[in-house]
Each structure stands twice: as C-alpha cells, then as structure tokens.
Write a protein that binds this DNA or RNA. Structure first.
Length: 389
DNA sequence: AAAACGTGGAC
DNA sequence: TGTCCAAGTTT
C-alpha cells in the first residue's frame, strides 16, 4: 500500500489504488463491526433526518431513547408538522440545543406544504431545509438517496486530519470546504452512505478524540499520523473561550394557586421552555444585611419581561443550600433561590407568568436548570407542600 | 468570522 | 470542581 514509506508529509495525495484499498478496508470492517442502531434499520429519509439532527453535538447513547420515543409520538413527517409545540418541546426536553426541535418542525412543514411531501433528493436541495446544514445534508443525501457526497462532521474532521496529517484548524469555518474537497474523491461511489457512516463509526471507536487506539484500527496502514507517531497532533483545533459567569436570582413565588412560572421568550436561550422567574442579580437591589434583596419597581430585567411597572413588594427569603449552577457552552449560571409565600393571588393575577399547581409543573417542558431548582425546592420543602407529583 | 446555542460523559 | 468533547447550524 506504499504509505509506510518515510517522510509522508501532510497533503500528499492518495493514488487511485490507495483510495480503492482504503474503501475496501473501511467497508469490510464496517460490514462486520458497524453498530446496529435504531435509525439504521432502513434508509427512510425521515428516520435518517431526525436521527442526524438529534445527533448534532450529541452522543449516540444519549440519542437512542429520545429517537425511539420521538418516532413513537411523531411517526411521520406529517405527524411532526402537525404536532402541538408543547408536545414537541417535551419530547426534546433534556436533549439540549432546543432550536433544533423547532427547526425540525419548521422543516417538516416545509416538506409537507412547499414540497407536497416529496423530499429533495440531493444535498444541495436538502440544505434548503431549515436546520439542515452541510453535514446533515450530506448525511441524508448519501444514506437515504445514495448521492456520492461526503458528510463532514467532527468524526470526519478528526479521522481525515489524522489519516492525511491535515493541520488546518478545524474550528475555522473555511476549513470545512477544504475537507469536503479532500474527502469527495475518496467517498465510495458504490456505497456513499455506508462510507460516511463507517467514517463516523471509526471516529467513535479506534479514532476517538481521547484514548484512541490507532494501532488496531482497520485503516491503520493508511494512517499517516500513526506512522509518524504524531496522532496526538491531529486534528488542530483552537479551544473555545471560557463560559461567562451569570449570577441570577431564581424567584420561587408560591400562592394558593401554585407556583409562578414563566415561559422563555423567542429571543432568549431555552426559548419555549418554562422556569421560575429569573432575574440577573445586577438588576436586583441587595439590601444592607445581604440576607435577601428588596424587590422594587426598578427590577429592569423583570419589568422588561413582564412589561408591567409592578410594585411587587414581595417578602423574599433565601432558600437554603448552595446556588443552583448550570454550565452552558458560553455561560455559567449561578442561581440563588429566593422564596415568597402569598396568601392571596389578587395582586398578581395580571402577571404574564402562569400559576402552576405543584403536580402540574412537570407536565411543562422544563430545561435542566429548572429541574435542579425544583429538586432543591422539594428537598427544602419550605411550604410543606404535600402534592408534588 | 465569530459567537450563540444544552446536556451528559470521561478523566 | 474543572476541562474537554460529542453525528453542527444559525445569525
């Protein structure tokens, strides 16, 4: 195979014979060792599409139960297009990157109405669907429709960066096109879908980011970085900045009608999901003793959200325990919990939030940070509530 | 081009 | 507890 010669620097191109041998080694391995996954039971574009969107930035083992539940509830594109949004968000709860769910439904509606139920059969056409980028378009086109195109995800970046010792920074947008150009002639024209999936299986087994095992890889003989003993040098990827600290108060406001909950707005993170009211600490005036903040009408964040100039006059008390923390890709929330117990709700009826009975809270779509706040509330039990679901 | 966007697992 | 990573897309 000729790649054991010394000094194989990056960017040396594979000969047609090398490409042929690589495909054979890869696909022979894949046919025997490829994973049996729920979305690989057929090549239905709906199945491929939903699984690929769920798999964006998400590990396989996380996706499996979500995929199975999703298909039970929304078995067809038409069912997804017609689904009530709360059902959709509930089915996606815990998966993260929630705009994926809404984009998925918008694309389903595109297919039903604009395309009359007929799928675009090429990557270029599929990329017109909202939420379908270059990777997902390539994956659906190759797996469901047999188009000979690469599907360049994190695995493909890593695998080919190592195989060919490509030192372009894969964090940079411009690098994608370069990888697509390099991979395109290597994709097996007979089995493009299997080829792309085999690369991904390789990237999640022998050629993982950490603790890789290139010595036993089925394509070891094609692995330039392994031959050069430089596996750890690839891929090149600049690291992300640290998440910014966001100190919040979480307001747990209890009344005879239940707990005050608000739905996150269109422009906000976690959009469409429900939480206790959250107020940036900078927007809430601390009192001298620093026991609990005094809530006044100058709570800018809250008045913006509720669009009311409300004299809240709540008697807020801190809830015991450390702040609830939740780390996102770009933010680190630390939420101090404060409670208030109202004897009557007459003053608060016009709040744009909703009073939710304790037993009904978990019926709403909730983000992880809300589940943590709820858990803390139940642990502390300040209102001696007996009706938790 | 760079930043925003969730969560869970591995170490 | 902290850091990095995982089948990316949108703005």
């Amino acid at each position: 195979m000729g790649k054991t010669m010394e000094g194989w620097d990056s960017m040396e191109e594979w000969t047609p014979a090398t490409i042929q041998a690589f495909r054979r080694a890869l696909l022979t391995w894949y046919d025997h060792e490829g994973r049996d996954l729920p979305w690989r039971r057929d090549h239905d574009p709906y199945h491929v599409w939903v699984s690929e969107v769920m798999l964006q930035q998400t590990q396989v083992q996380t996706v499996i139960p979500y995929y199975q539940n999703f298909m039970a509830i929304f078995p067809t594109v038409a069912a997804l297009a017609a689904a009530p949004e709360p059902d959709l968000l509930k089915a996606w709860q815990g998966l993260g990157y929630y705009s994926r769910a809404r984009n998925l439904q918008r694309a389903a509606q595109q297919i039903v109405t604009d395309y009359h139920g007929q799928w675009p059969r090429t990557a270029a056409g599929l990329a017109d669907l909202i939420g379908v980028g270059p990777y997902t378009a390539g994956a659906i086109a190759s797996i469901a429709f047999g188009e000979v195109v690469p599907a360049v995800d994190g695995n493909a970046f890593r695998v080919f960066a190592r195989l060919l010792m490509i030192d372009d920074d894969i964090a940079k947008p411009r690098t994608r096109q370069r990888f697509e150009n390099i991979i395109q002639p290597i994709v097996d024209p007979e089995r493009p879908g299997a080829f792309n999936q085999a690369i991904m299986d390789l990237g999640s087994s022998y050629m993982t980011a950490k603790n890789s095992d290139p010595a036993h890889s089925p394509v070891r003989d094609f692995d330039a970085s392994y031959q050069a003993n430089r596996v750890a040098d690839f891929p090149v990827k600049t690291k992300a900045p640290r998440p910014k600290l966001m100190p919040y108060y979480g307001l747990i406001i209890h009344s005879p009608a239940g707990y005050l909950m608000v739905q996150r707005g269109e422009q906000e993170m976690l959009s469409g999901y429900w939480t206790f009211p959250l107020v940036l600490q900078a927007d809430l005036r601390e009192d001298e003793a620093e026991v609990a903040p005094t809530v006044t009408t100058d709570i800018t964040e809250m008045t913006r959200r509720w669009q009311k100039d409300i004299q809240l006059d709540l008697d807020l008390q801190p809830l015991g325990g450390r702040p609830v923390s939740q780390t996102y890709t770009h933010q680190r929330w630390q939420v101090k919990l404060l409670t208030a117990n109202l004897q009557t709700i007459s003053d608060l009826q016009f709040y744009p939030g909703q009073w939710v009975a304790p037993g009904d809270i978990t019926d709403l779509p909730l983000p992880k940070v809300q589940e943590k706040m709820l858990q803390r509330l139940q642990d502390q039990n300040p209102f001696e509530e007996l009706e938790w679901k």
